[in-house]
Simulated assay, not measured.
Amino acid sequence: MNMSVGAAIAVLAVSLAVVAGSVAAIVSMISSLRKPGDERCRAIVQGVSATTLVFAIAILMLASVWKVVCVFALDRSFGGINPISTLAIVAVFYLVQVHRYKKKFGD
């Protein structure tokens, strides 16, 4: 299982890009929530936030169902949910929804 140096550098570069993108998405999500704006901007953020909340609840419900399946049906332990990766997924979903809502409502 020896990896060449080039392959190791490529894996490291992709990993760092994913981490940097996740951090940028999280920071962007938080900054857009804190930014004041007019009524249309607030309506967009409110709609996006509600949609993202439903998405986050769905992720947590799926993880709970998977935990039950792992423990009872497959007789193995469940390691849990990684909060950083879950937050990154929710942040990316939020940014996609912001883009979609801004395109729809024109901001």
Rank of each mutant, 00 (worst) to 15 (best):
K104R: 15
R100N: 13
T86L: 10
L95K: 14
S28C: 09
S77L: 12
S64T: 13
L53W: 05
A88E: 01
A43L: 06
I84S: 02
M3G: 01
R40S: 04
K67N: 11
I30V: 10
L60W: 09
I84R: 03
Y94P: 02
G80P: 01
D38H: 08
A58E: 09
S4M: 07
C41D: 07
Y101F: 06
V48W: 00
A73E: 09
L12N: 08
V14R: 03
N82K: 02
F72S: 12
A17N: 07
A8E: 10
L74E: 05
I59A: 10
R42N: 07
C41P: 00
N82S: 15
I57G: 05
D107C: 15
V18D: 08
I89Y: 06
N2G: 14
M1H: 14
C41S: 09
I81V: 15
S15N: 08
M3R: 10
V5H: 10
W66C: 12
F55P: 02
N2R: 12
E39F: 09
M1W: 11
G21V: 04
L16C: 12
D107E: 09
F72V: 14
R100Q: 08
Q97P: 02
S15A: 12
A20W: 01
T52Q: 04
W66H: 15
V5S: 11
I57A: 13
S28F: 06
T52M: 05
F105M: 11
V11E: 15
V48M: 00
S22D: 08
N82Q: 13
H99T: 12
I30H: 00
G21D: 13
K35N: 03
M61P: 05
A56N: 05
I30N: 02
R42C: 00
V98C: 04
A73K: 13
L60V: 12
W66P: 03
V45T: 07
T52C: 02
V45C: 02
V54R: 02
L12H: 08
A24I: 10
W66E: 15
H99G: 14
Y94D: 04
V92R: 03
C70F: 15
V69C: 13
V11S: 13
A24Y: 09
S4R: 11
V71A: 13
Q46F: 08
F105Q: 10
A10E: 15
V45P: 00
D75K: 09
V92S: 05
V68G: 12
D38W: 04
Y94E: 03
S32E: 03
R76Q: 15
V92K: 04
G6W: 11
V19E: 09
